[in-house]
């Protein structure tokens, strides 16, 4: 029924979304790209003009750059490891028949709805505080010296907080996938003499492969930009010990007032995100063809 008329109408209906997103994508990105080749410091109006690759060089030679790339990778990798492994384990657990399944699900999913600043504050003060946190109370009870988490293990602490926020997401998606596994398949495998371990390796894991891919890719998108958790807890420190790329750009731009340098960092972040994006688009795109 696709006559010329309905085609025109369809284009007209799509125009607002498409145009807005087009502007949203092109304008700021073009500005970032432009700034990244300029001398532009908000505190020093006298320095301006074309900078060539100076900003990139500056960003690249800053020792904090490599540290922050490493920190970014640690956050992404650490959180992914915890959430995927934990998500599969909890998913399998909740897939069993248990009493009060609905409530258990609600409890497990809840952290995802906690806004990042609140999550960070709760963990910083109520749980991990060296003097009054729950962890310190437990250490005291066991007669151990309480750990000053954010001073001694700043990156690890942030990984824990972020993992706590994303574990529900991974669990929920993997549980949904588990529940879609045909129970006759499971029964057939049981009849064929496969024990729990074998069923997991040969039946469950292949069935989950796609969902795990989706979890990894989507979380990666968000994890590359972890910001509020760092701002609220360590503020990137001590030194640069818990500064990731996103936080470094923020520091350069709004604390250092160096627009050019921050823009160069921004372009680097875009390139990093694109590498992940290509894989995610493939995974989601396949789903469209079903």
């Amino acid at each position: 029924m696709a006559t010329q008329n309905t085609k025109t109408l369809a284009r007209l209906m799509m125009a607002p979304s498409v145009l807005l997103l087009l502007v949203w994508m092109i304008v700021p990105l073009a500005m970032t790209l432009w700034f990244s080749f300029q001398n532009y410091n908000l505190l020093d109006p006298s320095s301006d003009g074309f900078a060539g690759f100076f900003n990139y060089e500056f960003f690249y030679t800053d020792p904090a750059f490599f540290q922050s790339i490493w920190n970014t990778l640690v956050i992404v990798g650490g959180v992914l490891l915890i959430t995927v492994v934990g998500g599969i384990a909890i998913g399998l657990l909740l897939d069993q028949p248990i009493f009060g399944q609905g409530i258990v699900r609600i409890l497990v999913i809840s952290p995802f709805f906690v806004m990042p600043p609140v999550a960070a504050l709760i963990w910083k003060n109520l749980i991990m505080h060296p003097g009054y946190g729950v962890f310190a109370d437990i250490a005291n009870l066991l007669g151990l010296q309480p750990v000053d988490w954010f001073a001694q293990y700043p990156l690890f602490s942030i990984v824990i907080i972020v993992a706590w926020q994303w574990l529900p997401f991974a669990t929920l998606i993997l549980l949904t996938a588990l529940q879609s596994l045909d129970s006759e398949q499971k029964e057939a495998a049981e009849m064929d003499g496969a024990n729990f371990f074998n069923r997991f390796i040969y039946l469950v894991l292949p069935h989950l492969a796609r969902s795990i891919t989706v979890v990894i890719l989507i979380q990666t998108i968000f994890l590359l930009g972890v910001y509020a958790e760092i701002l609220v807890t360590t503020n990137g420190g001590p030194g640069y010990a818990s500064t990731n790329i996103a936080f470094l750009i923020y520091r350069t731009a709004l604390l250092g007032y160096d627009v050019g340098g921050a823009s160069a960092g921004g372009i680097i972040a875009v390139i990093l995100a694109n590498i992940v994006a290509i894989f995610l688009m493939r995974a989601v795109g396949k789903n469209l063809d079903r």
């Binding site: 910001y227 750009i249 923020y250 995100a273 694109n274």
Partner: peptide, 23 residues
């Protein structure tokens, strides 16, 4: 078009922090 729309979601926010802030 759908895939392209999705791709805009993947732009890291910090990358456009400076221009958005200035605008």
């Amino acid at each position: 078009v759908l895939m392209w729309m999705l791709s805009t979601k993947m732009m890291p926010a910090v990358a456009v922090l400076v221009p958005i802030y200035l605008l």
